[in-house]
């Protein structure tokens, strides 16, 4: 019996910026319909990993397969159908300042329709659809008329989430979804993410250094350290992984194999 093909398969992914090696041979399999959380310290390459998968950064070596197709070998035009299947929640929301909240939420739908990947919606239909999506993330549809600058950080994250799930993507990426939020709002966002991923049946990769968030979102968790995924396991083993590097990180200990360069 053959094993099922992972939705996302990464092999030997490498990326360096000048002399600084950020990714040094990352291997990762994420099965369809599951959530994988990458944890790791600041500057360990978590965001670079996501950006490589999204095609925002070109890796130096290695392969990134989505449904068995190595997307690193595709031209931007060939990547378009894959991008249409991906939703992304950025760390700070990355909402477009010049557009209203509802236009932000339906931006991807409008873009997909322009590219012939979805039905064309009138402005009234788009606005109604944005209202439904805002309700899905626990917001009043009336918020759609506001500008992103009028929203709090937590509300911006929720609007970003509504925008990410608007096209019902097969794959969702979350870049530090709870950074900058209070613990209660962080838990709310995590709950919404878990709900959305479950309802859509999407495959998700999240990166975070918030252990509570990792446990709430992930089906599996992996730790990125010195450019490699040094450990993978179930979220409930996160604080008792048996790996000294992971244990030092998850318990926030100053002493251990991870040496933090603190300069006065």
């Amino acid at each position: 019996m053959t094993e099922p093909t992972p939705k996302i398969r990464i092999r030997g992914l490498k990326k360096a910026f000048g002399p600084k090696v950020v990714l040094d041979g990352v291997d990762l399999d994420v099965m369809g319909g599951t959530s994988f959380v990458v944890i790791g310290g600041s500057g360990t390459g978590k965001s670079v990993l996501l950006r490589c998968i999204l095609g925002l950064i070109t890796p130096d070596a290695g392969s990134i397969e989505i449904d068995g197709v190595d997307v690193t070998t595709l031209t931007p035009r060939q990547r378009e159908p894959y991008m249409a299947r991906i939703g992304m929640l950025f760390q700070n929301g990355a909402l477009f300042d010049s557009l209203s909240v509802w236009e932000n939420v339906t931006f991807g739908l409008t873009a997909a329709a322009r590219m012939g990947h979805g039905p064309r919606l009138t402005r009234a239909q788009s606005r109604a659809r944005a209202g439904e999506l805002l309700e899905q993330v626990g917001m009043d549809p009336a918020v759609g008329a506001l500008s992103p600058s009028e929203l709090s950080g937590g509300m911006q994250k929720r609007v970003g989430l509504a925008r990410a799930i608007a096209a019902r993507p097969e794959i969702l990426f979350f870049d530090e979804p709870t950074t900058g939020l209070d613990p209660i709002m962080g838990a709310v966002i995590d709950g919404l993410i878990a709900d959305c991923v479950r309802k859509l049946g999407s495959t998700a990769i999240a990166i975070t250094h918030d252990m509570a968030s990792a446990q709430r979102i992930g089906d599996r968790v992996g730790m990125l350290y010195e450019g490699r995924l040094i450990w993978q396991g179930a979220p409930d083993t996160l604080f008792d992984s048996g790996n000294p590097v992971v244990d030092q990180f998850t318990h926030g200990r100053r002493e251990g194999p991870i040496k933090v360069d603190v300069r006065t």
Binding site: E80, F90, F96, A111, H117
Partner: peptide
């Protein structure tokens, strides 16, 4: 300033992820 702010706040990357060149 507008495009620069979009760059440093990831809005330009967000455009790419939303199928927009």
């Amino acid at each position: 300033a507008e495009i620069g702010t979009m760059r440093v706040t990831d809005q330009i990357d967000a455009l790419t992820t939303l199928s927009t060149n």
